[in-house]
Write a protein that binds this DNA or RNA. Structure first.
Length: 331
DNA sequence: CGTGTTTGACCGGCGC
DNA sequence: GCGCCGGTCAAACACG
């Protein structure tokens, strides 16, 4: 880990265009789904910004002059949230992403792991061997099998609050101090039964105003309607899936140029006086497809959100962001 | 009382 | 083998 950090720092040169993330990003994105789409639009001249470009392939500064489709989500004509297809791992293991080992696990397998763990718990509880049970619960993984991780999806948000409301309900199950960071990392789990999606939230040590959120897993349910009826911030809604995988990539959902709060943030803005910018960065394109799909379950957010702002415009991938994300995907 | 948070302990992975 | 560190568990606690 330390080494990773050091490496990252070394790599974190002023120009990150081809350094930190690019090595994890397939040079030729073969992602099915949404990732192809923008390109098509590009041909039509109505959507200049390819999604892949947005993903931080390069430092991409997109202007708001682009006539973006009403909503990126609208562009995504994909089926509802479903467990990721087995193809996930294949995509994730794209040769061009040698370093994305953590994502190399098939989301499907990972999901199965979850089930197995749960099943194990039930069985053991019934046995009543509490002592033994506890220990086994703590290590439900099979021997000789590396822990399988669900595809992860990280993004950064410039916010004063760590935990943004994304429409899903999360339960915090842990918090740890992170090495090389003065800020603790919080661990959240989706409270929906049978949904094993987790997310980690931590602040960037480089820029305390930036919150790095990493989602892991796939929501197996639609985005619940929150009491507030808000789905705050789109990226946080990441319910991904892992359906499509790919190496790590990153991008920042812009808003940095907003002079006022974007509509989709109104209900969840942490503090009143944020002239915010929800700077969001994303890694793991693998999670994107479903991520966007899920958004479609959130009635109040995606549409208005993207209709008002083509979120993917004005992509900015600051170096520090890339650095962090790369680190994220390196482990 | 139900739900969510806090927090110390524990475990596994990994590097040395 | 050992120690560090990230991740998770679960009891205790807080809150509405």
């Amino acid at each position: 880990m330390e080494k990773k950090v050091e490496d990252l720092k070394n790599e974190n040169q002023p120009m990150m265009a081809n350094s930190t993330f690019s090595d994890q990003i397939p040079t030729s994105f073969a992602f099915p789904g949404i990732f192809d789409m923008p390109c098509d639009y590009n041909e039509k001249g109505s959507f200049d910004l390819g999604f892949m470009d947005i993903l931080g392939f390069q430092d991409y500064y997109c202007t708001t002059s682009n006539s973006t489709p009403s909503s990126l989500f609208d562009l995504i004509q994909t089926p509802p949230v479903v467990p990721s297809p087995a193809s996930t791992s294949e995509v994730v293991n794209t040769p061009a992403t040698p370093n994305s080992t953590s994502i190399s696990s098939s989301s499907t397998e990972a999901a199965n792991d979850h089930d197995q763990i749960k099943a194990t718990k039930v069985e053991q509880d019934e046995e009543g061997e509490q002592e033994k049970t506890k220990k086994e619960l703590l290590k439900p993984k099979k021997k000789n099998q590396k822990r399988q991780r669900e595809p992860r999806f990280a993004f950064m948000t410039k916010s004063e609050v760590d935990h943004l409301d994304d429409g899903f309900r999360w339960r915090k199950y842990g918090q740890k101090a992170v090495k090389n960071s003065p800020f603790p990392r919080s661990y959240y789990r989706c409270t929906t039964p049978a949904c094993g999606v987790k997310k980690r939230v931590e602040r960037s040590s480089d820029d305390p105003s930036i919150v790095v959120t990493t989602y892991e897993g796939t929501h197996t349910h639609p985005c619940p309607v929150t009491p507030r009826g808000s789905i705050g911030f789109m990226p946080e809604t990441a319910a991904f899936g892992g359906g499509v995988g790919g190496g790590a990539s990153s991008f920042i959902f812009p808003p940095p140029h907003y002079q006022q709060q974007p509509p989709y943030f109104q209900n969840q803005t942490p503090t009143t006086s944020l002239s915010f910018s929800t700077t969001t960065t994303t890694t793991s394109s693998s999670s994107f497809p479903t991520f966007f799909q899920d958004r479609r379950f959130c009635p109040s957010s995606s549409d208005s959100f993207l209709r008002d702002h083509g979120l993917l415009q004005d992509m900015i991938v600051p170096s520090h962001v890339r650095k962090e994300l790369k680190e994220e995907w390196k482990d």
